[in-house]
Simulated assay, not measured.
Amino acid sequence: MYHTATSINSEQLHEFISKYQHQEKFMAFCKDCHNYNTLWSCPPLQFDANQLLLGFNYIYIIGVKVIYDAETIELANTSDKIKEITTQSLREVKNKLSNILLDLERQIPDSISLASGGCHICQRCSRCDNLPCKYPEKMRHSLDAFGFDLTAITSDLLQIELKWSKDSLPEYYTLIHALLTKHSLGDMLENISI
């Protein structure tokens, strides 16, 4: 059905913020998303995003391309099939990548990960009922919730063009996660693969 390819790059966080964070522009897009104010992982955030970022010095961007084989692309010949294949494959890969990053957080003191898109651990997020997150130890905020330009990040740092579904399944999708750290990890993340 699909295979994956992982790309990783890093930058000092202050440089990354100055190049890629455009909160006003990207928060406007978030407000148009169905996840806005319905998932704890998504805006409006319940904390000062910039204050959280100040506690870290490095950001590691982990991009995973979910590349579909020709047969799967051909089978995705209706909007329902496109949605089904997209949801299943992206959730599988996102769950694997999220678990790898949660493991890394346990190994690396003073680190935290950011995820691709909204959290879907629960069928219905407790935020819809004005209740706290049920799984704060697993839920991670989306990278875009901090107002980062994901298109520019993937293009500049990973040399990947983001693809989107219109009337057919694209050749690939890209999930973009990040790991924030206080100290450089050197080549520690080199062997991550999904």
Rank of each mutant, 00 (worst) to 15 (best):
I67F: 02
I82H: 01
I85W: 00
L97H: 06
D80A: 08
A70E: 07
A70S: 08
L150K: 10
K134Q: 14
L97C: 07
L101A: 06
L97K: 02
A115S: 13
F146D: 13
I100H: 05
N130K: 10
A70Q: 03
A76R: 00
N130A: 08
S79E: 06
Y68Q: 00
A115V: 09
L90S: 11
I112N: 08
D129N: 03
N99I: 10
Q123T: 11
I73K: 00
M139P: 03
I160C: 12
I73G: 01
H141N: 13
C119Y: 04
R140F: 12
N77Y: 00
I100F: 05
I82P: 00
K94L: 01
I100A: 05
D103C: 11
L101I: 13
G118R: 05
S113Q: 09
P109K: 12
S116D: 14
K94S: 10
E84I: 02
K83F: 10
I160N: 11
I82K: 02
I108N: 10
F148N: 04
E84H: 07
D156G: 15
T87R: 06
S89L: 00
A115N: 08
F148R: 10
N77D: 08
P136G: 13
K96G: 01
S113F: 15
N130G: 02
E71W: 00
D110Q: 06
D129P: 00
C119H: 03
T151S: 15
I121H: 09
L114F: 08
E71P: 01
E84K: 04
I67A: 03
E92F: 03
A145V: 06
D144H: 08
H141A: 09
P132Q: 10
D156S: 15
A145E: 07
L101Q: 04
I108P: 03
T72P: 11
I100L: 04
E71D: 04
